[in-house]
Nucleic acid binder design. Structure first.
Length: 976
RNA sequence: GGGCGUAUAGCUCAGUGGUAGAGCACUGUAUUGACAUUGCAGGGGUCGGAAGUUCAACUCUUCCUACGCCCA
């Protein structure tokens, strides 16, 4: 197949992805192969591909393609998450656009609507992952609301309940008044916002006064509205100011509630007046203080409803005018906060804040301005309200023990290691995990209540009924009602109509489980658990998990807990955490800032291969990635380079190789490139073993561009030059080796750039299999060390000649002659010296590598010795020099390679000064180096105490630089 | 307040107890067959600051400064 002259990523991407997916390339049958398994972090089913997904999935695809090429039974489990709140929000928003509402539907009907939405629009992100080239096993695509997944969730819940690891409790939760559901502490984000600090007088009851004679206690608060539910005032037990009033009471303004003054260490004597108001039903700290003061959770006053509007407290003391107000100002309408402050001010209970203006005048304000750490819901975006409700909690502390141990003893390796400390810090201070959510979309909690407050937790309704039957006795009839809770009256009938004590009605808990409760089961529920299967046996534990560090606690840690709980094992031995992709200026990408980079746009512009390579090359462990489009463009150029190199190969009859093993080679260039393939492969393997994506990407990049394209292809050009015999050994061997080397590049590059490599793989010839299931390089070739060294020398000499010409302003195309500097200013060199040997090797090399030197270094003739013979590099013909006398005195420039100097006579005008300055510069460098090395070597401490290798190296370097100094000085002397 | 991380070329980033590299950008130069999405060559860094350990510190330790993230 002939390649187009231009490389067009879009066309080949679509074609190859379809081909791979249709032919089962992502999951070849390899029953006997060693398994390698990863599961993807399931993106929200509502999601679309953002740059973070692109990074996360590129890294996973690189690993899975690499392992597949290495012959493993590579399985990449893929699927999406039902994302409770997010998905319900999306569907509700759509309803609102049609002037419809969730409340117009029964629960079942609404859930049906969500499923409809899922089937129509839920596949966006999975198609986008395909565009990125991700080789997931789509044939087993998973969804966290799949039937088998629900089974896994129910079993886990019931088991945890039976093991006392899940329980129902009344305590403060983080309540999102916009979404009207509880959320876990992880879903709360603290933000610092500008707020106020108000100071109030709480009058002491019973004519009590402080020692100072003051008849009130001053308290301060950032949330004045909560005073409607205050239940105490706390002071520090050691605070002398208040010692006499502990146990006494204050009468709350507005409500007139009589509340005690309690001693508690929570009160900070240094802060404000040292006394704090205590609202146990609406503040986490106050809740604890309240409990210590003997107030049971059930008795704590609640003054807000689910919308965070004021409701009447249990003691009925909130004045009617406050009931129904929102907690604080919203949409320009004053709320309870403003009303409470206004009322306290009117009644004389507000202590104004005195501020000084710049002029020094005193000004009164209602409150002191202050920065306040405020909790916000990560989904709803409104201020979170601590609210007293019954919720289900998972005993995370117990479940965390084994994961902590796993990381501690190395059963799980976290890469980069620096995250371990953060992990331990969180896991060792973990709070009960609130898992119930007041939503309709999600896994409904498998708990059935009766009106007596009994709860029956079971995997099915039938089992729940059986439990209830057993509990209440056979004489009682059990019925189940759906959807809503029931009142005693509904249950027993109206008293006037007589009670039916023989009927027990069960209703199922209306709440659903936190989405993360189900995704915590991902590593095994996706493989069929709780059913036993070969698939599960073979692929659990997985081999690796790759995720962003932002979900370390949300997801990774919880998978560890559930893996240990359900499977008795860590879900994977290795956890790789990558950073965030940031905007070019280092800012976090966000829709509100408008600095979001769309990965699909980058794919359109530069190709998926280029984007993927960028992600890999930038992924050094533990650092965020800053977006850099220029760099993506650079990797597009790299793809183009490879494309063109392949075109060159094709034009010279270089096609697909037939062996995995390196062909046997005699020519130096061929041996050299085989050695370089081995080196590159070893480098990539080492990098991949450590998950150093950047190092692996750079290794294949450098090898392909700087070795294969820049040198090897140039070196072999003479073999195919016009007039050479295409059937002779050099051409035959070179075609074979070049085809093999290019194939190895395609294989090694494939995990990073799957599309272009697959395209070129097939363009190079008819293949027995696609590249996606090809075999990783295994060169197993013995290389002639001298042959490879020949090429290293040639590269050094050629580079020296080019540099010298460039600096002297000699046009690059100018053909020059070259000879070896045999002696130094007339000093004879002994024939058997090291130097003499080198010179003789150099002479041989000119003979062997003539055509390449002619072409690459633009050298015409080589003079093996002063004025005896001329060796024509291009043809290899030697002729006798007739008159040698004029050679020595000619203007010349000097270059060196491997410590041997070469002179290049120059016809016509040469800029002697330019050459002198060039040599002087080199001389200075070598002198400086030599001096420094000499200093070190003359230090007895160094020679005695440094590592022997370091000393040897220093000696070698010193010898080299000293020789250079001599050579350069001689060359300068010759120039006069 | 506690914890973690970062500071290296103009920019984005690698790196190692033995005197620093890549990509991009920049400068010069080259165009009749792989490639200008290119070739060849070049300039550019007292490795954030200070002290210590060491024969030797960009690298290890401590402190400081700046920035970022997480937790309270």
């Amino acid at each position: 197949m002939t390649l187009d002259t231009t490389f067009d990523p879009a066309a080949i991407e679509a074609r190859w992805y379809k081909h791979w997916e249709e032919t089962g390339g992502f999951r070849p049958e390899r029953p006997d192969a060693e398994p390698f398994t990863i599961v993807n972090p399931p993106p929200n089913v509502t999601g679309s591909l953002h740059i973070g997904h692109a990074l996360d999935n590129t890294l996973q695809d690189i690993v899975i393609r690499y392992e597949r090429l290495r012959g493993k039974d590579a399985l990449w489990v893929v699927g999406t998450d039902h994302a409770g709140i997010a998905t319900q929000m999306v569907v509700e928003r759509q309803m609102e656009e049609r002037q419809d509402s969730r409340k117009n539907y029964k629960r079942e009907k609404f859930v049906e609507k969500v499923w409809e939405w899922k089937h129509e629009s839920g596949g966006t992100i999975t198609n986008q992952l395909r565009r990125l080239g991700c080789s997931m096993d789509w044939s087993r695509e998973q969804f966290t609301m799949d039937e088998h997944f629900t089974k896994a969730v129910l079993k886990t819940f019931v088991d945890l309940y039976n093991d006392d690891l899940i329980y129902r409790d009344k305590r403060l939760v983080n309540w999102d008044p916009k979404l009207k559901t509880a959320i876990s502490d992880l879903e709360v984000e603290q933000q610092t916002i500008a707020g106020h600090f108000w100071h109030f007088k709480y009058p002491l009851a019973d004519d009590v006064t402080l020692d100072s004679g003051q008849n009130y206690i001053e308290v301060a608060t950032t949330r004045p509205e909560t005073m409607l539910a205050d239940m105490a005032v706390a002071v520090h037990p050691t605070d002398e100011r208040y010692k006499s009033v502990v146990g006494k009471h204050v009468i709350l303004p507005i409500t007139g509630r009589r509340i005690p003054i309690v001693a508690d260490e929570h009160a900070d004597p240094e802060l404000g007046s040292g006394a704090v108001k205590i609202t146990p039903g609406h503040d986490f700290n106050d809740f604890e203080v309240g409990k210590r003061a003997g107030i049971a959770a059930a008795d704590m006053l609640n003054m807000l409803d689910g919308d965070a509007n004021v409701c009447q407290t249990a003691d009925g003391l909130v004045p009617e005018e406050f009931v129904g107000l929102h907690r604080f100002k919203r949409d320009g309408v004053d709320g309870a906060r403003e009303a409470v402050v206004a009322r306290l001010k009117t009644d004389g209970y507000l202590i104004p804040h005195i501020a000084k203006t710049k002029k020094g005048d005193e000004v009164e304000h209602d409150a002191e301005p202050r920065q306040i750490a405020t909790p916000f819901g990560d989904r709803g975006g409104v201020v979170i309200e601590p609210w007293l409700t019954d919720q289900w909690y998972v005993d995370a502390e117990k479940l965390a023990q084994k994961p902590i141990q796993d990381v501690r003893d190395g059963t799980i390796e976290i890469v980069p290691k620096s995250w371990e400390k953060t992990f331990f810090n969180w896991m060792e201070n973990i709070q009960p995990w609130c898992v119930s959510r007041q939503l309709w979309w999600g896994h409904r909690i498998p708990a059935w209540f009766d009106a007596h407050g009994n709860v029956f937790v079971a995997e099915s309704e039938a089992e729940a009924i059986a439990q209830a039957q057993a509990f209440h006795g056979e004489a009682v009839e059990i019925e189940v009602r759906t959807d809503q809770a029931i009142t005693n009256e509904e249950h027993y009938g109206k008293p006037s109509e007589g009670f039916n004590l023989n009927l027990i009605t069960l209703y199922r808990d209306p709440d659903v489980l936190d989405t993360w409760f189900s995704s915590a089961l991902w590593p095994f529920a996706t493989l069929g658990w709780p059913e036993k299967s070969e698939l599960l046996d073979k692929h659990f534990p997985n081999n690796l998990l790759i995720s962003g560090f932002d979900i370390l606690f949300f997801w990774d840690a919880r998978m560890m807990m559930m893996g240990q709980y359900n499977m008795g094992e860590a879900p994977w031995p290795r956890l790789y955490l990558h950073g965030l992709v940031r905007a070019a200026d280092g800012a976090k990408m966000s829709k509100s800032k408008g600095n979001v980079v769309d990965p699909l746009g980058l794919i359109d512009q530069f190709g998926a291969d280029a984007l993927r390579f960028f992600m890999a090359a930038m992924e050094s462990q533990g650092r965020d990635i800053k977006m850099d489009e220029k760099r993506v463009e650079g990797y597009r150029n790299f793809a183009t380079k490879l494309w063109n190199a392949t075109r060159f190969c094709q034009s010279n009859g270089i096609g697909a190789s037939t062996t995995l093993k390196a062909p046997s080679a005699r020519l130096a260039a061929n041996q050299w490139i085989i050695g370089e393939v081995q080196a590159a492969c070893a480098e990539i393997d080492a990098a991949m073993a450590d998950l150093r994506f950047d190092a692996a990407a750079n290794a294949i990049y450098q090898f392909t561009w700087s070795k294969f394209c820049d040198w090897y292809l140039e070196l072999i050009k003479p073999v195919f030059a016009e007039g050479s015999d295409p059937d002779a050994m050099p051409a035959v061997e070179t075609r074979e080796v070049a085809g093999w080397a290019l194939d190895q590049i395609l294989v090694m590059l494939h995990p990073f750039m799957p599309f272009i490599t697959e395209e070129l793989w097939h363009a190079q010839g008819t293949r027995g299999y696609d590249l996606i299931t090809a075999k990783w390089p295994d060169p197993r070739a013995g290389i002639e060390v001298n042959a490879a060294a020949d090429i290293d020398w040639l590269i050094e000499l050629t580079s020296s000649v080019r540099a010298a010409k460039n600096e002297l302003g000699i046009p690059p195309g100018t053909k020059l002659n070259i000879g070896v500097v045999v002696d130094i200013i007339g000093q004879a060199v002994t024939p058997d010296s090291e130097r003499q040997k080198k010179i003789s090797i150099a002479r041989d090399r000119f003979a062997r590598l003539g055509p390449a030197l002619h072409r690459l270094a633009r050298l015409e003739n080589f003079w093996p010795e002063y004025g005896r013979t001329v060796f024509e590099l291009a043809t290899g013909e030697s002729t006798e020099f007739e008159d040698s006398s004029n050679l020595i005195g000619r203007p010349q420039l000097q270059v060196s390679a491997e410590g041997i100097g070469y002179y290049i006579p120059l016809e016509g005008i040469i800029d002697i000064d330019a050459e002198k300055s060039r040599l002087n510069k080199a001389l200075e460098t070598s002198q400086k180096e030599a001096k420094s090395l000499e200093g070190r070597l003359s230090n007895a401490n160094f020679v005695e105490r440094a590592k022997p290798e370091a000393v040897d190296k220093a000696r070698e370097d010193f010898a080299h630089h000293s020789a250079e100094v001599e050579r350069l000085e001689a060359a300068l002397a010759r120039l006069g």
